[in-house]
């Protein structure tokens, strides 16, 4: 019995360490789609699914989503795994502490294409390359040098988020300078702890922002009961862009 309690305690503590990210964590966006992974660095630079570069000894937080079926981001070398679920964001946090390469697998069955050369669940692989800080910066610089017109224009950047914020009419109710309006201000909104009409406290994070755009009436911040915001039909990447933008409205 005591053994069981001890086993539970040890494993639960270790589990929580990988669920909670450090404040200064490098935030990597991970997207799963049959049968590839793709990445995006904190500044919006996209990275192909072949390999992700990470600086050693720096805390990392991965925010992951899927555009089709269930996937699962599995890094055996880090003893880490998390399902990547369509319709929600999932997170893992870790700090790589050794230089080298780590294999990434998809660990949630996601089918296979037809024909001998088609990919499938088994070929949804990737790598994480742990490099020094200097090599990481150099790598980022190298992939950013790709001419702008070749880049994917809809890659969920803050700039695009700002355009959406202005273009979709959000400005009517949400200010960015802290002034009062029908809805909560976006100034400093990211990571803020809000009190809901139910009295519950909630931290503004990816899932809350997503829910508030797609189903605004689900969780309303106290004193904004009369806001009556309509639901918006946004693509996943548009939601990403809004999130990226909200992180800049400090």
């Amino acid at each position: 019995m005591l053994l069981i309690v001890w086993m539970f305690h040890v494993s639960y503590s270790a589990y929580i360490r990988n669920a909670v990210a450090a404040d200064n964590a490098l935030e990597i966006r991970v997207r799963g789609a049959r049968w590839n992974w793709s990445y995006q660095y904190p500044d919006g630079t996209p990275e192909s699914g072949d390999a992700l570069y990470l600086p050693v000894n720096k805390p990392v937080k991965m925010v992951m989503s899927s555009s089709d079926v269930l996937h699962d981001y599995f890094v055996p070398a880090f003893r880490l795994k998390k399902d990547v679920v369509p319709g929600m964001y999932s997170q893992i946090a870790f700090t790589p502490n050794r230089l080298g390469e780590a294999q990434v697998f998809c660990a949630e069955y996601c089918g296979a294409g037809a024909g001998p050369t088609a990919g499938g669940h088994f070929s949804m692989l990737s790598k994480i390359k742990i490099v020094t800080e200097a090599e990481y910066e150099e790598h980022l610089k190298k992939i950013k040098d790709i001419p702008a017109e070749l880049k994917d224009k809809e890659n969920g950047t803050a700039l695009w988020g700002e355009q959406l914020y202005k273009g979709k009419g959000c400005t009517t109710c949400h200010s960015v300078d802290g002034s009062a309006a029908t809805g909560p201000t976006f100034k400093g909104v990211w990571g803020r702890t809000e009190t809901l009409t139910t009295g519950e406290q909630i931290k503004v994070d990816e899932n809350y922002v997503r829910e508030s755009i797609l189903r605004p009436q689900a969780k309303i911040v106290k004193t904004f009961e009369n806001g009556n915001m309509p639901p918006f039909v946004f693509t996943e990447k548009q939601v990403d862009a809004i999130i990226a933008y909200l992180k800049t409205t400090k």
């Binding site: 086993m7 503590s13 589990y15 599995f74 003893r79 660990a107």
Partner: peptide, 16 residues
């Protein structure tokens, strides 16, 4: 089965 009940261990071993 006890290994798999341990959260941190299961994270690694799940779906393997």
């Amino acid at each position: 089965g006890l290994f798999l009940a341990m959260l941190a261990v299961d994270v690694h071993l799940h779906d393997t």
